[in-house]
């Protein structure tokens, strides 16, 4: 297995870890967004709470969610290793730099840190509370039986009455957008996907993704805040 360790600890190997974990998290974002958009349904939260219950109880989803944490940690720790190596690669900096690359491509670390802070707040607010404290229990009737569920919808709605939390979410989603705008296409290059016919499409897709998905996330708190 020595070869695997060698491959994964090389600069390219580490970049591949970054890319693969990043691509997984991108997939996760899609699933998460689809669920969250249920919050916009004006059904008093039934659709959303059903979704939340499904997510909380399906064993496959549970496994994936553990993987999700593993990938988040991989993404964070490998990036720390790489950042450290990269700063060592230029011990003496320039007196003056006139950059030609995009701002987001150079500041993935800062953008990532903002997303990390957001993630902590987000998890404490929802996932943590859901797991560790008591939520209100709601119920609805389906096929003549009463179904119980954690009323995540009400909690969410309550939380998004704080303007600062809404602001944090919006700002973080902007950071996510910039992070994705570089990360999406960068990940594909890192795993070696490149072809004159398909790369332009992937770049376009990445750009669209990095605008649409964070915008979708950002709309929810704003909408709920405005709804009151």
């Amino acid at each position: 297995m020595n070869w695997l360790v060698n491959a994964l600890t090389s600069t390219i190997g580490r970049k591949v870890l970054m890319a693969l974990s990043g691509l997984f998290l991108i997939l996760f974002l899609v699933v998460h967004l689809v669920g969250n958009l249920q919050l916009l349904k004006s059904d008093g939260g039934i659709a959303f709470n059903t979704y939340a219950k499904f997510m909380g109880h399906n064993p496959l989803i549970q496994t994936v969610s553990i993987l999700n944490f593993v990938f988040i940690l991989t993404h964070i720790f490998v990036s720390l290793f790489l950042t450290l190596r990269n700063s060592k690669a230029r011990p003496h900096g320039y007196a003056y730099v006139n950059n030609s690359s995009t701002w987001s491509s150079r500041n993935m670390g800062i953008l990532g840190t903002i997303i990390l802070v957001f993630l902590v707040v987000h998890l404490v607010n929802f996932w943590g509370k859901m797991k560790l404290t008591d939520f209100g229990i709601g119920s609805y009737v389906e096929h003549d039986t009463t179904q119980d569920y954690l009323d995540l919808y009400t909690t969410t709605k309550a939380a998004f009455q704080d303007w600062w939390l809404v602001l944090l979410y919006v700002v973080s989603m902007i950071a996510l957008a910039f992070h994705l705008s570089h990360g999406f296409q960068s990940a594909f290059r890192t795993i070696g996907v490149n072809h004159p016919k398909y790369t332009p499409f992937l770049k376009g897709l990445g750009l669209a993704f990095s605008i649409i998905v964070p915008a979708g996330f950002a709309i929810i708190p704003v909408y709920m805040f405005l709804q009151g």
Partner: peptide, 30 residues
Amino acid sequence: GACTNTGACSIECPKGISMSNIALMNRDFI
């Protein structure tokens, strides 16, 4: 250092060497 695909290398390269080389190298290495 490690590559973060900023693309500055290719923009500044006096011979315009393309970033697609990096993708090909990654693929070969993997």
